[in-house]
Design a protein around this nucleic acid. Structure first.
Lengths: 192, 192
DNA sequence: GCATCTGACTAAAGGTATTAGGCAAACTCG
DNA sequence: CGAGTTTGCCTAATACCTTTAGTCAGATGC
């Protein structure tokens, strides 16, 4: 009965590592118990249930991603900032696929409110300070950028762009060029 | 021992319905057996295993989506086609959230090759015939559009755009306007 | 009608999630 | 420091879900 020193934080970190190694869907209470060489039931003192564990991993990933984003944005503006933030998402997904998948975990409204989600949209909005967009176009642009970042990274992770020319890095660069051009020249609302 | 008349197709369709009703992750061999009032083991004559079942549902969803896309693109071009295809994805995700989630199921390379995946990229490429883009920019644009469609719909489904102004429909419309403008005025490669 | 095939069944083993209750290690405080 | 309390990990038990093996009867083909 030697105490191993489990804590919600250690379990969450270990779960995140497991996710990166084997996939987020392989993260289970049982597997985590095995990793600590502890009986399954023991984890339930630290984590409410399986869903709670996954939520914690998701929140960890969202926070890490926001931290990296903040760091990358510091001192940059305009296209430089756009590229920096975009690369943060892409690199994170590449380096930590399980955590990135975890960040997509459907959160309850309460968990979402307590998450770093707001920081993410704020970062995207910060990029737009380098462009001349008033509301509501700024919000539209925030949503567009979020969609492209998330969509591209997801499709790339799913293997959608491999095995075909041109390579993904080139598309990524050109897409960011194109978004920069679009933001600099955002179209006026069309006449109905 | 009355024969119920199970077939892989019926199981797949029922699984897709279950996904829309309760979520793709609630689709299990057991639940499906209950739905047909049949013992669990009976399903294994028609479906290799749980993964196979999910793959079939994913393939069904991808095919349905491609069918709707084809129908929507018929007789349209330019921005009209762009909007039509984009709406197909968004509407499908809204009407069949479980199937849309299934379409994201990670396929093995063989399953992916046999899927309607190629039709999807061909449809996007067809849209670009209305714009003046030569390779490799056309491929970059295909990837951009795929990212936006998928990314936006996913974020919207996750509730990312609810509870905040402007409403999602308005952003969607303006984002499609913006993409149209971008495609009509695709930036030349920047000088290195 | 008979032989065959096949679809659904029983049985069984193994994995995951979760709860209840027990015991000992670690903390707390006089 | 030692008594009392808290807390962490344990055993035990229940309930699903998945998957395989082997059986039997209903459907099919000649």
């Amino acid at each position: 009965m030697a105490r191993v020193g489990l804590t919600p934080e250690r379990l969450t970190r270990a779960g995140a590592e497991m996710a990166d190694e084997a996939g987020f869907d392989q993260v289970t209470v049982s597997a985590l118990a095995r990793r600590f060489d502890v009986k399954v039931a023991s984890l339930y003192s630290h984590v409410r249930n399986s869903h709670d564990l996954k939520t914690r991993i998701a929140l960890l990933a969202l926070a890490e991603l926001a931290d990296r984003g903040s760091a990358a944005l510091a001192g940059r503006s305009g296209k430089d900032a756009l590229t920096a933030l975009a690369d943060v998402y892409r690199d994170y997904a590449r380096d930590h696929p399980g955590r990135y998948a975890a960040a997509q975990f459907r959160l309850t409204p309460e968990a979402a409110a307590a998450s770093a989600g707001a920081r993410h949209s704020q970062m995207t909005r910060a990029i737009l300070r380098g462009y001349d967009l008033a509301e509501p176009d700024q919000t539209h642009a925030v949503r567009l950028l979020g969609s492209v970042f998330h969509g591209y990274v997801t499709l790339e992770q799913a293997g959608g762009f491999s095995h075909s020319a041109p390579d993904s890095q080139e598309s990524w660069t050109r897409i960011l060029d194109a978004l920069d051009a679009l933001l600099r020249n955002w179209p006026a609302t069309e006449a109905g």
